[in-house]
Amino acid sequence: MTAEIADGAQQFMRAFSDPEFVARYTDGPRRFVPGLDGLHRMTAVLLAERAPKHAKVLVLGAGGGLELNALAEAHPSWTFVGVDPAPQMLQLAERTLGARMNRVELIEGTIDHAPAGPFDAATCLLTLHFLAAPERLRTVRAVHDRLRPEAPFVVAHSCLPKERVERSLWLDRYAAYAVASGTDPEQARTMRATVDASVNMLSPDEDEAVLRDGGFRNARPFFAALTWHGWIGHA
């Protein structure tokens, strides 16, 4: 991560290096992200619209391996390059993938460490909200540069409105969903406060503008679930 990434993202990065956090990570996203399994299935469907049968897919923010495993299961002829800055999370991805690791190359680092491609498709799920706006735009442009013309790019992450009252309402809903999904209320309150104070949240309109400015001029939304939003664009 570069110096432009805010302190809140650095705090999250330290958590991704905590063995106890990593050990319980697999269940965490499903408690905070409504429809996570459906998001993975939709991603597989959307990428397949233009990706060839033997596609090579770039997965940015691949730590944990949840989306890698879902995509590899859905498309047995695809191969993948997964990139993530947290080595412990990459180790978890390797365990999650099991026998499917024979179609996956895992790389420790950021987009700068990814091969030049060209790739047939790319994803970045539950990741871009860690990056400050300038770094987010730079990352999107770097993904675009690694894709074949017309290759699909699917992103999904958390967004929040700028207006204070509206933002607070959506943060309350974020925490309430986590509690309804089995998260300890105190942990949900802590996560709410951390997201509010530390993560570089943009509004949905701002995030869509980042994709357009990064070269994906036809980016369109396909997913919205409380604070979480997803888009598909083409290089």
Rank of each mutant, 00 (worst) to 15 (best):
W170H: 14
S181K: 09
G61Y: 01
F21C: 13
A132D: 04
A180F: 02
G64L: 04
L68K: 04
A23T: 06
K162R: 14
Q88S: 11
T183W: 01
R103N: 08
A151W: 06
R14L: 14
P149H: 01
P85I: 07
H234S: 04
D196N: 15
A193P: 00
L211H: 02
Y25R: 04
M13W: 02
W170P: 05
R95Q: 14
I232A: 07
T194L: 12
E206C: 01
T139R: 00
L36N: 08
T194G: 10
N200R: 08
V155C: 09
W170S: 08
A176T: 09
P161A: 08
S181W: 00
G230K: 02
G8C: 11
D184H: 09
A99R: 09
A44S: 15
T43D: 01
A235W: 07
M42F: 06
T2K: 06
A116T: 15
T43H: 00
A48G: 15
Y25D: 11
V140Q: 01
W228D: 13
V45P: 12
F130Y: 01
A121Q: 13
V199C: 12
T79W: 05
Q187C: 13
H229M: 09
A178V: 07
G28H: 06
D120C: 08
D37T: 04
Q88K: 08
E108K: 14
A6E: 05
L60R: 02
C159V: 05
N69H: 15
V45G: 11
K53R: 13
I111V: 13
E186G: 13
W78Y: 04
F153I: 08
P34Q: 03
L137H: 01
L92P: 11
L131A: 10
A9D: 05
T79G: 02
A44I: 13
Q11V: 11
M191K: 11
E94H: 07
A209Y: 02
A3Y: 05
R164K: 15
A70V: 04
A74H: 02
C124P: 05
A188G: 11
E135Y: 03
T190C: 12
A9C: 10
L211T: 06
R100P: 00
R212L: 05
D120Q: 10
A156V: 11
T43A: 05
A132W: 00
H229N: 12
R14C: 08
A55I: 03
V81I: 14
P87D: 07
P134S: 02
H113E: 13
F119I: 06
T227M: 13
E206N: 01
A188V: 14
R220L: 08
Y174K: 13
R164S: 11
L171G: 07
A99Q: 12
N102F: 08
P152E: 03
E135G: 12
A3T: 10
E67S: 12
R95P: 09
A93Q: 07
Q11R: 15
E208C: 08
K53L: 02
D18N: 14
D37C: 06
F119D: 14
H113L: 12
A176F: 05
Y174N: 09
P204D: 02
H229Y: 11
T227Y: 02
V22P: 04
M42G: 09
M42P: 00
H157G: 12
P85G: 09
Q88V: 03
W228M: 13
H129N: 10
R41W: 03
A175I: 06
L211P: 14
D196P: 00
R146T: 12
F222Q: 09
L66E: 15
F153W: 05
M42Y: 04
K56C: 01
K53S: 07
D145T: 12
N102K: 14
G8F: 00
